[in-house]
Amino acid sequence: MGVSIDDVAAQAHVSTATVSRALRGLPRVSEATRAKVLSVAAELGYVPSPSASGLATGRTRTMGVLVPFVDRWYFGHAIEGIDQVLRENGYNLLLFSLGGYVHGQKRSFTESMVRKQIDALLVLSLGLSEEELRQLHHTEIPLLSVGGPVVGCSGVYIDDGAAATAAMDHLLGLGHRRIGHLSGGVQDERNFKVPALRTLAYRTAMERAGLEVRPDWIAAGDFTVAEGVRAAVQIFDAPGELPTALFCGSDEMALGAMFEAQRRGIRIPEELSVVGIDDHDFSAPAGLTTIAQKPWHHGRAAATMLLAELAGATGATRDTLMPFELVVRHSTAPPPG
Rank of each mutant, 00 (worst) to 15 (best):
T16K: 12
A17L: 11
T18H: 10
S20P: 00
R24W: 02
G25R: 06
L26E: 04
L26N: 00
P27W: 14
P27V: 00
R28K: 15
V29N: 01
V29M: 06
S30Y: 10
E31F: 10
E31G: 15
E31R: 13
T33K: 09
A35D: 07
A35W: 02
A35K: 07
V37P: 00
V37F: 00
V37I: 14
V37H: 00
S39F: 06
V40P: 01
V40N: 04
A41K: 03
A42C: 08
G45N: 08
P48L: 05
P48K: 02
S49D: 12
P50F: 02
A52T: 07
A52Y: 06
L55G: 04
A56K: 08
G58P: 00
R61E: 08
R61D: 08
R61A: 02
T62Q: 05
G64P: 12
L66V: 00
P68L: 11
R72K: 03
F75C: 09
H77T: 15
H77P: 07
A78S: 11
I79Q: 01
I79W: 00
G81H: 04
I82P: 15
I82R: 03
D83V: 12
Q84E: 11
V85Y: 03
V85F: 04
L86C: 09
R87L: 11
E88Q: 13
E88L: 10
G90K: 10
G90Y: 07
Y91T: 15
Y91D: 03
Y91V: 15
L93R: 01
L95F: 04
F96D: 06
S97F: 11
G99L: 12
G100A: 10
Y101C: 12
Y101G: 15
H103D: 15
G104Y: 05
K106A: 15
K106T: 14
K106Q: 14
T110Q: 09
E111V: 11
E111M: 09
E111L: 11
M113Y: 04
R115P: 05
K116P: 14
K116L: 10
Q117H: 09
Q117E: 08
I118A: 04
I118T: 15
D119H: 07
L121A: 02
L122H: 04
L122D: 03
S125I: 13
L126H: 12
L128S: 12
E130I: 13
L133F: 07
R134D: 09
Q135M: 12
Q135I: 04
L136P: 00
L136I: 02
L136A: 08
L136Y: 03
H137E: 05
H137V: 13
H138S: 12
T139L: 09
E140R: 15
E140S: 14
E140W: 08
L143W: 04
L143N: 00
L143V: 08
L144W: 01
L144V: 10
S145K: 06
S145V: 06
S145D: 08
V146C: 09
V150D: 05
V151Y: 11
G152S: 14
G152E: 04
G152F: 03
C153E: 04
G155I: 03
V156G: 12
V156S: 10
Y157P: 10
Y157L: 10
D159L: 08
